[in-house]
Design a binder for these strands. Structure first.
Length: 818
DNA sequence: ACTGTGTTCTTCTAGACAGCATGTC
DNA sequence: CTAGAAGAACACAGT
């Protein structure tokens, strides 16, 4: 079918498609339209990546909007949300408004109700449903991208439940599910009452093969000679070969998939030696600029290593990178500046980065539960291989697996090249999944009885797949029991109701188990407050940081210790008995205690204990025993002790971060990348926010301590900098510099001498002006201000509460400010 | 003394969603 | 039982 003949789309769109060069629909797209895609019919499209799935989605959404509806596009990753948004925004000139909603980003401007197309992650959609977002019932079309993720143990159930809820809200909803080619796409289609388009067609040919000896053998029987130099260097040979091209061909980029971060980094280092020989003079200087940008992102070893590789035209890519790093690398690869990326599976599922050649170097990955190296799923390998072939650049894409002997070559053909992808299976019956979703289902009124819940669950993929409905019932009963025991729901005859806390937990998007842990911890703290404060007071260890000085901080910001008197006659303080008048300047619970509390929650992904860590953190555990909220498990008897230590390690990372320890040092100390720090901090921020909310709802005096802990991770600063760091344009480093220069608060920013401020900001006039403006200064202009006019006493020594060591720590961390 | 090469031993392991509420003198 | 690569540490031979 020709795009010009499409009907039911908003005016001008068929012509616009034509102008984009899309004159004819691809066969699978054609099939989709035949199946009623533009008439509001539901559809499951199981087709390879890059075979025009997005257009299928667009046709459905646009026609739905043309009929006066509203469309939702569900993505699995935040990064994909912004990618899709950018793509859909080209319809804005035809009157289509696009909005995004993810945890960390929401479209500016009008509220989402006014948008025609909304892009969101599945969790965000779930959350919006829980919070009864106003526009939910206006939806007429929902697109679920990468629907095969229902197979995912952790995140699959969310997608599944969310789709079920959306369909229950609007039974005539058009559901368009986009999936990779999976074994049982038909089952998914049955579940969604949708027709199925199943196809292996792709616009660019994909040749899959195995490299063994001195040649690649492809699935079409052809061979390509790729001699390997001595020393078993298959990957470099393949990367070099792709760059040689076929003469008239364009230089070919390569994507190399490996199974660990370390392997990605070391492979990139080696590939840099190859790509280096194929870059032109112009490219070299562009790459040098890019390398400088990368160094700018973060001042860590990871960043430095990446910059070094990039300068030579190669890069690595994994979740330890800061997201800015990832974007820089992905963009430069798409612009053909970077010739080779060595990546962990992040890249296979992430944003679109097509490549001439894909090398799947490692097809096994360590799996602790499995007990060794586990072969990757066919689906996963297919997704990696599907990245081969750049539209408009390559005549075909090549995906190559590596083997060292003839046997494994045959095995690889068998296992991955000739094989169909596995079936997807709902993971909904797992207890952790049901814990959250049953509570949410009750709390947001989708069901009020046990039978109602089971009826609702009957609309999920799990129900269409299972032949043992009893199992779901069993787990449901166990979970309901758990939820009742923990006070999140209550039974009244046959009806189930969410308690007020239950409602809050559901809306906060917490795993009920996390909420229970947090509530227990905070209550425990209330009960043991005096006793623990005494213990802490008796100590003179180096941990007394939070016991200092007057808070000259934000208005309305109260110390927990200020609350003691007020709390004296309240419930929370009572259990401490007659001791409630115990005086202390110390904040309780401490930040470490709170960080540990949220770190041992199932919503936090903990750091691994490496060799030696066990001893280090066991020692730390005894040292700071009074700070922990709840009983400390026994080192010798408790199996949970390991986990508890991992949580402690994670909590320590957060403590370092909020003690202004330099990023570089943190990455080194904990063996993580800059991206990991950001991730942990973000999660902690969210969980502490939730804890704050719970504490205030349960009338626990620890709200203020929790709030302080949250703000300190959020900005990554000590308490005295909280006010400054709240100013836009002032981060942890600038805040510390300003403070050291005697500018200690937002008010000081408005009043202090400009030359002093300018000097503290290293003479950056523009940033100084922006900051002053953000702080609300009337005359932010830095014209004619000379930083050298700053008075000599620019660094008043009023930070006496710090130990000498901490101080030098901080200064070391500031030395590299830039 | 320095350097290159081979051998053994230790170490370590992918990814990433979510709340809330907006600001100022 | 259901791992294997990287890199450090070490040993040794050649110059």
């Amino acid at each position: 079918m020709r795009t010009a003949d499409l009907t039911g789309l908003p005016e001008g769109i068929p012509e616009a498609l034509h102008d984009e060069g899309i004159e004819e629909l691809y066969p699978p797209q054609d099939e989709a339209v035949e199946a009623g895609l533009t008439d509001g019919e539901s559809l499951v499209a199981a087709v390879p990546t890059a075979s025009g799935k997005t257009l299928v989605a667009e046709l459905a959404m646009l026609s739905s909007v043309a009929r006066g509806g509203k469309a939702l596009y569900i993505v699995p990753l935040r990064a994909l949300a912004s990618e899709k948004k950018a793509e859909f925004e080209r319809w804005e000139e035809y009157g289509i408004d696009v909005g995004v909603s993810t945890g960390n980003y929401e479209s500016s401007g009008e509220w989402l109700s006014s948008r025609d197309i909304i892009v969101a992650t599945s969790e965000k959609v779930d959350s919006l449903v829980r919070n009864n977002a106003a526009w939910m019932d206006q939806l007429s079309c929902v697109v679920a991208d990468e629907v095969h993720l229902v197979n995912d143990r952790h995140r699959g159930p969310t997608l599944e439940v969310t789709l079920a809820k959306l369909r229950q809200l609007n039974p005539s909803l058009q559901v368009v599910a986009l999936s990779a080619t999976v074994g049982n796409a038909g089952e998914v289609a049955d579940w969604l009452d949708a027709s199925l388009v199943h196809s292996d067609w792709r616009p660019i040919d994909l040749k899959m093969g195995v490299h063994y000896g001195n040649a690649i053998t492809f699935d079409d029987g052809s061979q390509r000679e790729v001699p390997v130099g001595k020393g078993d260097r298959q990957t470099p040979a393949l990367v070099a070969d792709a760059l040689e091209g076929d003469g008239d061909d364009d230089q070919g980029s390569s994507l190399v998939f490996v199974n660990s971060r370390r392997n990605a980094e070391s492979a990139a280092r080696r590939m840099a030696g190859v790509t280096e020989q194929y870059i032109t003079g112009d490219e070299r200087s562009e790459l040098a600029e890019l390398a400088a940008e990368i160094r700018d992102v973060s001042d860590t070893e990871t960043s430095e290593d990446l910059a070094k590789a990039v300068a030579k035209g190669a890069a690595f890519h994994h979740a330890g990178l800061a997201s800015e790093h990832r974007t820089l690398v992905e963009d430069a690869f798409r612009d053909r500046l970077i010739k080779c990326i060595c990546a962990t599976p992040t890249l296979a599922a992430g944003v679109n980065t097509p490549s001439r050649r894909v090398v799947v170097r490692d097809w096994q990955r360590y799996d602790g539960d499995y007990g060794g190296m586990k072969p990757l799923d066919v689906l996963e390998v297919h997704q990696m291989m599907g990245r081969a072939g750049r539209p408009g650049l390559d005549p075909y894409g090549e995906a190559v697996l590596l083997s060292k002997d003839a046997d494994s070559r045959d095995e690889l053909f068998e296992r991955y090249i000739w094989a169909d992808a596995e079936d997807v299976h709902s993971k909904l019956a797992a207890e952790p999944a049901l814990r959250t979703h049953l509570l949410a289902t009750v709390a947001s009124g989708f069901a009020h009885t046990r039978e109602g819940l089971l009826e609702f669950l009957d609309q999920t993929l799990y129900a269409t797949q299972t032949d043992d409905p009893g199992r779901l019932e069993q787990v449901t009963d166990r979970v309901l029991d758990y939820l009742e025991v923990n006070g999140f729901i209550e039974f009244e005859d046959q009806t189930i109701r969410a308690t007020p806390v239950g409602h809050t937990v559901s809306r906060l998007y917490l795993d009920p188990m996390s909420a229970a842990e947090i509530i227990d911890g905070l209550r425990w703290a209330a009960d043991h407050r005096t006793e623990k404060l005494r213990a802490l007071e008796g100590e003179t260890t180096s941990t007394s940081r939070s016991a200092e000085s007057e808070p000259d901080t934000t208005a309305g910001f109260q110390r927990a210790s200020d609350m003691v008197a007020a709390a004296g006659d309240e419930e929370g303080g009572d259990s401490a008995g007659d001791d409630s008048d115990f005086e202390s300047d110390r904040t309780y619970p401490t930040t470490l205690g709170l960080y540990h509390l949220v770190c041992r929650t199932p919503d936090m992904y903990q750091l691994y204990l490496k060799s030696g860590d066990r001893d280090t953190y066991t020692e730390l555990c005894y040292e700071r025993e009074p700070e922990f909220l709840g009983r400390v498990p026994s080192e010798y008897e408790d199996v949970a002790f390991e986990d508890w230590l991992s949580a402690l390690k994670t909590a320590r990372l957060l403590e370092d971060w909020s003690d202004e320890v330099d990023e570089d040092r943190i990455t080194e100390r904990y063996g993580v990348g800059p991206g990991d720090i950001r991730g942990k901090v973000e999660t902690a921020e969210w969980l502490l926010g939730a804890a704050e909310r719970l504490a205030s709802e349960l009338d626990l005096e620890s709200v203020y301590a929790v709030r302080e802990a949250k703000m300190r991770v959020q900005y990554g600063v000590n308490e005295e900098l909280l006010d400054l760091a709240g100013v836009r344009g002032v981060g942890r480093k600038r805040a510390r510099r300003l403070y050291e220069a005697g500018v200690e608060s937002r008010a000081d920013l408005r009043e202090a001498g400009k030359s002093r401020i300018l000097a503290a900001l290293r003479g950056r006039r523009k940033t100084a002006e922006n900051i002053l403006e953000a702080a609300g200064r009337k005359d932010p202009s830095m014209d004619e201000i000379d930083e050298s006019d700053a008075p000599d006493d620019a660094v008043p020594d009023d930070t006496g509460f710090e130990t000498a060591k901490e101080r030098s720590d901080q200064q070391a961390s500031l030395g590299d400010f830039e």
